[in-house]
Design a protein around this nucleic acid. Structure first.
Length: 574
RNA sequence: UGGGGCGUCGUCAAGCGGUAAGACACUAGCCUUUGACGCUAGCAUUCGUAGGUUCGAAUCCUGCCGCCCCAGCCA
């Protein structure tokens, strides 16, 4: 055989695979190894196991992208399983919201919707089996006592005095627990493992606790419920999951899950743990997000400032931008990393730049009268919808003698040669139409500028002149005769501190200026046609979407999804 | 005097014994009817640290140092 052929083969395969192969994260590397060894017959079957006790946030999106995304990549499937082992905290409404969010991200569990509660009977039988094997026992210790017996991080615990009950007695007691013969909290079923283990999870963990609560799915069938630790691994096993992907906090639990699975001698998934997602200037803690909602720092779980998926959706984020962001971050085991929210914003800008039509909107209007423009004349101009996409076509905009420009686009005296906007005696271009020069600023009694008097150059029609003179500044504008009133909400980071999460008083770092409400905005008439949730770029401002909740036929409300980059603002600062 | 993890640019992150990818951010400039977009250039002589092995180490060995998680009948 010629070595030349071999070389060609190798080169080709390198060209095909090397970019991906070089950047494979540790989870994909493990899966590759399994596929090589045939451990799971080349099957990749994952699951996403949320507890239906709150809304999904961007941290969950990472877990979703990993579990659903990796399975997809390897031609496998993913189950959605609600780990509903604590009825006091869970509710169907959360389950519904969770499903909506996963679908929004573009993932599909098809017919594989499961619940840990589907397995309560099986779990009970297995618990009986462990009792019979002599590796589980009914304990009478109270919660406080159990804590004392558990020992400390550095010192071994003590065995419960009830640990040596006979199998028969345990069986009888456990049956009574199920039948409701004991009050809440009176007894527990515990695994008999090792009270001296360095791993706290192995110090005779609780498998069942008595808790009279109506379960959102099983109703009042049970008065005791399995703990997460007892239910989770077995649920994965029952579903024949091959790769259980979860966050680092479950690393310590893996030995326990393995222990249960070994005792039961059932299918053994491979659990791999990755670092959770943290992002600066926000928080990804369900508990803390709930506080923001309950203490009215925000408008609800879907407030556009929230890092929840429903909040991001309402803010105008796209599933693609969220997924791209997560993919760019990668997967690792580094725990204390904090991703830069600028990367998330960049992804959105990047996508919307290519896809959003441009419109003109004046957020803080200043009236301009063009003194040499004929009274009552209305001129029609073509305005390109998206310079990045010819297919987006163009629309008509209508120019008149009176228009609005942005208050921030005018100063009486230009501060320096780098200033391109309007000032007295300065000429600027009005996007798509004419050059105007400011002659005079009209002020009210308090000295506030209330109106500008300008003249236009008829030669500049369309935005350039025969003499070819350079006009650096281009302003957006809206004509007073057809301007549409709108409310615009500008959002900034929810927190003023990069890592608000690092201390307990995170509420002190809530940004008081995270929402700026502008109620007197004037926008292009074509904006009336934008549907709820629809996005566009406001020229020179950023990307905005029509608020899906508070917009009405009479009043359009826009949410700023993300600003445009602003090198002028940066220049002014320095 | 416990157990489990992690330490590569401001941030995230490749690299797996052959002489530090990429992205974001940042800086400088070009372009521009969005001070947007785009383009060009710059941005870790060094991989927590100290030794050792080697012709050669971020990659192997040893010792230190630092950070994080675990003591719910939460998940």
């Amino acid at each position: 055989m010629s070595s030349e052929n071999d070389n060609i083969t190798n080169l080709n395969s390198e060209n095909d695979n090397s970019p991906k192969a070089e950047t494979k994260d540790f989870i994909r590397t493990i899966i590759d190894q399994h596929n090589k060894s045939g451990r799971f017959d080349n099957v990749v079957h994952t699951r996403f196991p949320p507890e239906p006790n709150g809304y999904l946030h961007i941290g969950h999106a990472k877990a979703i992208c990993i579990s659903f995304g990796i399975a997809e990549e390897y031609g496998g499937v993913t189950n959605l399983r609600f780990d509903d082992t604590n009825p006091t905290k869970e509710d169907t409404k959360y389950a519904d919201a969770i499903m909506e969010d996963i679908k929004w991200l573009g993932f599909n569990w098809e017919e594989r919707l499961f619940h840990a509660s589907d397995y309560f009977d099986q779990l009970y039988d297995w618990a009986v089996l462990l009792i019979k094997k002599g590796v589980a026992f009914v304990d009478d210790l109270s919660a406080e006592e159990m804590r004392e017996y558990r020992g400390t991080l550095t010192g071994a615990g003590k065995e419960s005095p009830h640990r040596s009950r006979s199998v028969e007695e345990n069986l009888e007691l456990f049956e009574k627990m199920k039948n409701g013969d004991f009050p809440d909290g009176a007894k527990t079923l515990r695994a008999k493992i090792d009270m001296a283990s360095g791993n706290m999870n192995m110090r005779d963990p609780v498998m069942y606790r008595i808790m009279r609560a109506t379960h959102h799915r099983t109703g009042d069938k049970w008065c005791m419920y399995p703990t997460y630790d007892w239910a989770h691994g077995q649920s994965d096993s029952i579903e024949k999951i091959t790769h259980s992907l979860c966050d680092l906090s479950f690393e310590d639990h893996r030995p326990l899950y393995d222990w249960f699975l070994d005792q039961l001698d059932v299918h053994h998934p491979q659990q791999s743990e990755f670092a959770r997602l943290n992002i600066n200037y926000t928080i990804t803690s369900k508990r803390k997000l709930r506080q923001l909602v309950e203490q009215n720092f925000v408008d609800g779980w879907d407030d556009p400032r929230m890092p929840t998926l429903s909040g991001l959706r309402r803010r105008g984020y796209t599933p693609k931008a969220v997924k791209t962001f997560i993919a760019k971050l990668g997967v690792s085991k580094k725990r204390d990393t904090i991703a830069d929210i600028a990367l998330l914003e960049h992804g959105l800008r990047d996508e919307l730049n290519a896809s959003s039509e441009r419109r003109m909107a004046v957020l803080a209007p200043l009236k301009v009268v063009i003194t040499n423009y004929p009274d009552g004349q209305i001129e029609e101009f073509d305005a390109v919808n998206n310079p990045e996409s010819e297919a987006a076509g163009s629309r008509k905009v209508f120019f008149s003698k009176e228009i609005y420009i942005e208050q921030t686009d005018f100063v009486e005296v230009a501060p320096n040669r780098k200033y391109f906007r309007l000032a007295i005696g300065k000429e600027v271009r009005l996007k798509h139409t004419y050059y105007i020069t400011c002659d005079e600023a009209i002020k009210d009694d308090d000295g506030n500028i209330v109106e500008l008097r300008c003249t236009y150059d008829p030669e500049s029609k369309g935005g350039s002149t025969p003499d070819g003179r350079k006009v650096r500044g281009t302003l957006h504008w809206v004509s007073t005769h057809d301007a549409v009133d709108a409310e615009v909400r500008l959002y900034a980071h929810l927190f003023t501190k990069e890592s608000p999460d690092e201390d307990d008083d995170f509420l002190e770092h809530v940004n008081p200026d995270s929402l700026e409400l502008l109620t007197d905005c004037k926008v292009e008439p074509s904006l009336k046609d934008l549907k709820k949730g629809g996005s566009c770029q406001f020229l020179r401002h950023g990307y905005f979407c029509v608020d899906s909740k508070n917009s009405t036929n009479g009043k359009i409300v826009f949410n700023r999804s993300v600003t445009l980059k602003d090198s002028w603002a940066k220049m002014k600062k320095s």
